[in-house]
Structures are given as structure tokens and as C-alpha cells.
Design a binder for these strands. Structure first.
Lengths: 248, 248
DNA sequence: TATATTTATGCAGGTTTATGCAGGTTTTTT
DNA sequence: AAAAAACCTGCATAAACCTGCATAAATATA
């Protein structure tokens, strides 16, 4: 078997499984331990994979591991900066929880004078650093996993509110399934927020584009504006653009 | 299984659940206790997570308030340790704001199963780190200086509650003037909390003993238990003892 | 065609890494 | 205060690693 064939096989395995073991490759390709090691070494030098003790992992795999923090926070900051321009003085704004929303609050102008309504404790805390905004917390029974208020009481309170804008920190979005989430309680609250707002803004990092979770929050058509860290004409956003959503 | 695979699994679990337990990971990944510990240690060094006794928590979740520059934190810790013994399972407990109360929450046993009611955002946040307690937040309009909800709505909600205990973070106390405070809005809320509780516990560091502020919260006779960092027979506490207050 | 050159592979040996285990310490729970 | 759980340190071992060398195959050259 040619070296190039082995290399091709290794890459293919990596694409499928995101990882390969040296010992496994030895057996399947019937070559010595050293040969496999040299193969992996060469492919690593070409930047095709990342060698680790015992085998190799695919580049995208390693990406999601190491970049979780650095890369994602940069993206969130980009999103936050785009988002905060949407808020004008004297608006009433609904906010969900999530780190992206928190980032946005940090980016708000200290001159802004608006009313913010949220069921999220960390968001409320962050808002209190802003001297000129009014902060209204929604709900009483707190959900520890989501760090926010959930339940019938929240939904009831939201039903008496009419806001100008609602910013939704989004866990999963897909052109067909719309915005989806994993917790039933959180979905209930988000639905009520969407009912209570005039315009809906979804903030999502590209990593979560085209992913689906079990429960639907709303359809794509309910979204007015979608904010990601990508340029508005990026191909990943095309399906949303074609449905008439404003992209930032 | 490669080390990197385990690491990826741990990070993924953290992203979903915000917390992992070493014992659980041991079983799911079928490795020894030590290996998991080393994994968590390495990931913590890389800044991917925060290690805690028994496992790890996600970095973004661990939005914890800095306890670093709390004034007189040794004294407050002493007070907190005395205070938390007063709380038994299934109690309903009212809490004001303040660093002493926060310190007490940190000292609570994670096994405690009780209901806590508070109008303070930082206190609510701190309480959510406790796995087994119910947390109820009171109010909607937030006061930025006090970082808590104030106003008629809070008073009204409190009037419908009957709690077993109320812990009052106290700014000033004096044998004649009772507990006093400087903000009218905060005093209104504290008064309502006192109305709503069976027993009132005042927590105060010694340097605030025998000081007076403009507005009265309650008289000395309303207090059931007074907790300071001093021994119960300290001379500074004699005037309170003579009025029949229980001292800790 | 015969010989030199390169390339690919395997092997010997010594080194490093990953993991589990033993023992003792600290933290948590009862 | 005792017991249990989680923690840490150091050590042992096996697996994976590397370096250098030898050999075989492929390729190039005379």
C-alpha cells in the first residue's frame, strides 16, 4: 500500500470520527507502529491534522476545544457592538439571559436612558451598573439552571407588557426549524417575551447557526433582525436573508 | 480513548450542564479517579473551567461576585457561621442585602433544603449556587444604589408572606434608637420584612454597635436574636442583653 | 543493464507520557 | 468526633514516543 493511500485513509477517518488512534491504524493498514507515526507526523507538518499522544485529532475538533473562550468572546463582543446601536433613548427593551446579552450591556453608552426588563438575575445585576437606565425584574420563583425566573407568573407578567424591542440570546437556529432551545421552562418564557414585543432581535454566534434543539421558541418568520459576528453577506446567512430577515 | 477526547467530553458537558462531578465522569469515561482529576486540573490550567471540590463548573456560569475587598471579612465570616446554624430544613427565610448576608449564604450547608426570599439581586445570585434551596425574588422595579427591589410593589408582596426567620443586614443599631438606616426606600422594605416574619435576627459587626442613622427600621424590642463577632458576654452587648435579646 | 540515489519502512535502544495505585492529608458529611 | 469522600504526592509500569541505523524498494543515472 502506498504512503499516499494511507494518508488519504487517515484523513478520511479523521473527517468521519474526528480522531484516530495509532494502534488502530497500525492494525487496519498492516504497517509498523513507526510508519503510522511518521505518517501522522508528516500530515501534521502539512497542517492536515493535530498529532496527540496516542493518535491524532482533526483540526475542527481541536478548534471547538481550545477556542471556546477566546474566540467566542471576541465574536460575542462583535455581536454586542452591532446590537447596541439598535437601542434608542426612551425605548422599552426586553432581555433574555446569556453571555452575549451581558456583553451587549457592557457596550451600551452610559448616556443611554431607557427601560430594560429581564427575568435574568445576572443580566439585572449587570444593568444596575448603568446610571441612567431603569431596570425591571420579572418574576419571583427562580430557576437555578437558567439563573432566571421562569413559570406561569413570569408569563403572566409579560402578558401585561408592550416593549419596543426584545433581544433574544439564542441557543440554536435553523432556517426551517427556527429558534429552538433545550429547556421547556425557558422556552415558555421566551415565547411570552416574543408576544410582548414589537420587534424581535436574535443574537447568535455563527457556531450555533444551523443547529436544532428539541423545543421550538419561534419560527424564522417571527424574527425581525438577526445579528451574528459574520458579515451580512456571508453565505451561511443566505437562507435567512432570503426569508426577508434583516441581517447585521 | 485519547486524553483529548475526554477533555472535549468534559467541556461539552460543562457547556450543557454548567457543572460536572468527578465521580460521574469517572464512571462515564471508565477511567480512574486520578485521571479525571488530572484532566480537570489541566483544563483548569488552560482556563477552560473552574475546578471545585468534587468536580468543576463552567467559566461563564461561575459569574461570581468578587469577595476580595469586603471590609472586615473576618468578622463577617464569624457572624455568618453563627447565623447559619439558625436555619433548619424546610424553613422559609427572608434576607435583606449586604455583604454579611452574602457571607452567610456561602457558609450554608449545601444539604440545606429551605426557601429563601429576598429583594436583593446579589443575594439572589449567590443563593442560586446552592443546589437544594428554593429562591424567590421579590419585586420588579430595581433600585440601583441598594441593588435591590424597593417600592410599594415589594411591600405589597411581602404583606402576603409569612416567614419563619428574617435576617437583617444592619447598618446601625443602638439600645435606645433600635435599628436605623439612611435610605427611606430601603427602610420601607425592611419594615415590611419585619412585619412578615416570625423571628427577627439582626447581624451586625461590632463597629456599627451603638451608632444611629436618620431613619428607624425597628425598635430593639422587635429583635429576637442579635449576632456579632463578639463573644455573647462582651460588655458592649450588655445593653441588648438586659432587654432580653438573645445574643450569639 | 548495472550502479548510484533517493524513498519508504522496520528495528533497536533509550526517553517521555499517560495512567493507575499506595499512602497520607485535607475537606465534607454524619 | 468519627467516618467518608475527595484530594494530593510520589512511584511504577506500560504504552507511545523519538533517534539513529539498516534494509528494501523505487527511481534515477551512467
Amino acid at each position: 500500500m502506498l504512503k499516499q493511500e494511507r494518508h488519504a485513509f487517515i484523513i478520511q477517518q479523521l473527517n468521519v470520527h474526528n480522531r484516530v488512534y495509532s494502534t488502530d491504524l497500525q492494525q487496519r493498514l498492516v504497517v509498523s507502529e513507526d510508519t503510522i507515526r511518521r505518517d501522522l507526523q508528516e500530515l501534521a507538518e502539512e497542517g492536515m491534522l493535530i498529532k496527540v499522544h496516542g493518535g491524532a485529532v482533526s483540526k475542527s475538533f481541536h478548534f471547538t476545544l481550545s477556542n471556546n473562550n477566546v474566540y467566542a468572546s471576541k465574536a460575542k463582543k462583535d455581536i454586542a457592538q452591532k446590537a447596541c446601536h439598535l437601542i434608542a433613548n426612551d425605548m422599552v427593551v426586553l432581555l433574555t439571559g446569556g453571555t452575549t446579552i451581558r456583553e451587549m450591556i457592557n457596550e451600551l453608552s452610559p448616556m443611554l436612558k431607557a427601560t430594560f426588563i429581564t427575568p435574568s438575575i445576572p443580566i439585572a445585576l449587570e444593568l444596575m451598573n448603568h446610571p441612567r437606565v431603569d431596570v425591571i425584574f420579572i418574576g419571583n420563583q427562580l430557576n437555578k439552571n437558567a439563573q432566571m425566573a421562569t413559570g406561569a407568573e413570569v408569563v403572566k407578567m409579560l402578558s401585561t407588557i408592550r416593549a419596543d424591542l426584545c433581544f433574544l440570546g439564542t441557543n440554536a437556529i435553523e432556517a426551517g426549524a427556527g429558534i429552538t432551545d433545550s429547556s421547556w421552562e425557558v422556552v415558555e418564557v421566551k415565547k411570552a417575551m416574543i408576544q410582548a414585543t414589537d420587534k424581535l432581535v436574535s443574537m447568535v454566534i455563527a457556531e450555533k447557526l444551523n443547529t436544532i434543539q428539541p423545543m421550538q421558541v419561534c419560527g424564522v418568520s417571527d424574527i425581525d433582525t438577526l445579528i451574528t459576528e459574520l458579515p451580512a453577506d456571508h453565505e451561511l446567512l443566505a437562507p435567512y436573508h432570503s426569508k426577508g430577515i434583516r441581517l447585521l
